[in-house]
Design a protein around this nucleic acid. Sequence first.
DNA 1: TAATATATACTCAAGTTGAGTATAAGGAGC
DNA 2: GCTCCTTATACTCAACTTGAGTATATATTA
Lengths: 343, 343
Amino acid sequence: MGGFGAQDDRVADSVQIGLTAVIVAVTDDEPRVLVVRRVDHALASTEDGVAREGDVLDDDSLEALPYGPFYPGRHRTLDAGLRGWVEEQTQLDLGYVEQLYTFGDRGRDPREQELGARVLSIGYLALAQEAKPSGAGEALWQNWYRYFPWEDWRKGKPAILTQELEPGLEEWATQADTPSEVRERFARIDATFGSEEVRWNEDRVLERYELLYEAGIVTESQRDHGLTVVMSDYSHPMVLDHRRIMATAMGRLRGKLKYRPVVFELVPPTFTLFELQKAVEAISGNLLHKQNFRRLVEKSGLVEGTGQFESRTGGRPAETYRYVRDILTERLTAGPRLPMGKR
Amino acid sequence: MGGFGAQDDRVADSVQIGLTAVIVAVTDDEPRVLVVRRVDHALASTEDGVAREGDVLDDDSLEALPYGPFYPGRHRTLDAGLRGWVEEQTQLDLGYVEQLYTFGDRGRDPREQELGARVLSIGYLALAQEAKPSGAGEALWQNWYRYFPWEDWRKGKPAILTQELEPGLEEWATQADTPSEVRERFARIDATFGSEEVRWNEDRVLERYELLYEAGIVTESQRDHGLTVVMSDYSHPMVLDHRRIMATAMGRLRGKLKYRPVVFELVPPTFTLFELQKAVEAISGNLLHKQNFRRLVEKSGLVEGTGQFESRTGGRPAETYRYVRDILTERLTAGPRLPMGKR
DNA sequence: TAATATATACTCAAGTTGAGTATAAGGAGC
DNA sequence: GCTCCTTATACTCAACTTGAGTATATATTA
């Protein structure tokens, strides 16, 4: 069944499966993603998906998410396949792992032609305590706002939005063919990037990236359409559709933060409430009201005080807490409806 | 890159991709899923994944979700592949389509051996206005509580829970090896099925199904472990892992209902507010407070009255409404925090 | 015309949220 | 020691949301 046995003259070549991981950690109050540096595939091909010693590392090389092939013979499950090569390559012990999405558009991988195979990629989100990705591999932690500077509102509305993106989007909208299409484009911009009436929704990372891609504002869309790429100076592109995969991960993580206790995967075993808050802020990209955050976390019953105090903060010492990993309480944790900082 | 070119002696056979669709509609205030009937694969193999005329349809045949292979040569995207064969086979015009999850555990498809290939399946959720799936194929609409009778709380707590499942789960819990494992099992039961302290969470459909599977309560788990299947009399099994895929879809749809205006994909173009409410109730499996539902929907600004009235309901005629498909309002719609009916 | 449905409007207490003010407890500089 | 600065923690309060009613309107049917 499934018709897999049947032959169809239109049926194409085989399929290859890649696993792509967005591995996230928070250090120094910044969200970080594990990336590898690779030569752009438009220019050259390398042998293997995971960076190794000897790979080119010059400044023109493009960044990629760590990824590797799925070997059906070796791994019983997809998750096991992912954990396998990630742990092998980076010595990282992944905690929380979640499958995101399977990306399979034709042409997403330029090697499809030479391979004679369609390359599907299954994207994963993984959370880790930051650790040096030691051993083989040129993996390194990068601030994820390097790739999405418009997503960080912790210091107010990012300048890049007002100065670069909004003008670019507006130009794209007005260039539509029909007046009704122009209106529709403006409506989409408002819905994803916010406006007077519609507030910025931090979860819509993917929709924003896709709109920028469609508007030709993001480097990848020029590259994918065969245009000469003028390296954009305000955000960093990635190999293939890896920035799209990262946007998917970011949106999913931001959403999950609101109803599942995932922050605790990103902070050390004991932490002060303010450290916890700053981890949430790092991921969600905006600031929270300190007193309300505290009230919420305490009420949730997800944490308990240790009786220990932390005094390296300058002011009154803060009590440290630990996460109470109660299966029953694995329910909704929140952040309060993340407010947009002070306007 | 990706190491796809490299040969590895441990690397196994190729991979085949199937697309499996959970197509949902609501009619007569019941949620329905499109299923096809097929002979159980443990007993016999058929030629194709989509039911056709001539397929066995006797009472012992197992039910399956409609699914078909993904032809990389024919379809530019995975979504296009899905829409392609669904529309071809069922004449159904799919509206909302969403990718759910990629299932790839070894052994999920018993044909893997004979094919010499690993069979991955990408699950999709699709919403449709019910229509007769005419033409070729033995597809038919089934009430989805046929497969998950414990998920329908609209008439109070389902008897099957108290009479069959809870005793079964309890027995499974007490049979654990160590006392701490026993405690952990009970905690998992409470967390997924609710208890005095933890209320039933209608979104956790998959977790509940998986717990039942693990506890050996559900037919599939006996079958998959090679035990003689005593056809369970209280819920209906499906081929392979199709019931798991369906559980994933149901959980996702229930969750989405709360923050995206997806109900409108399931009701006709004009509807009374009570019809809308009953569609939500059908999906979520519990009853809502009528006056509050009305208040919520009206406040949301997602609907507008048509000025027309509908009088076939017996009492005072109800105004009909239509969905205002405003891109800006494609934001959170809700149901109120679905309450558990009258206790 | 009464009884019975259903639809729609309004009320109210309890809880949640956003945004403050007030107070506590440390260190640095003098 | 005292003052100032910093951060932590406690408490307040108005606005809004939610759950659960009661009240009224407008049909059909006996």
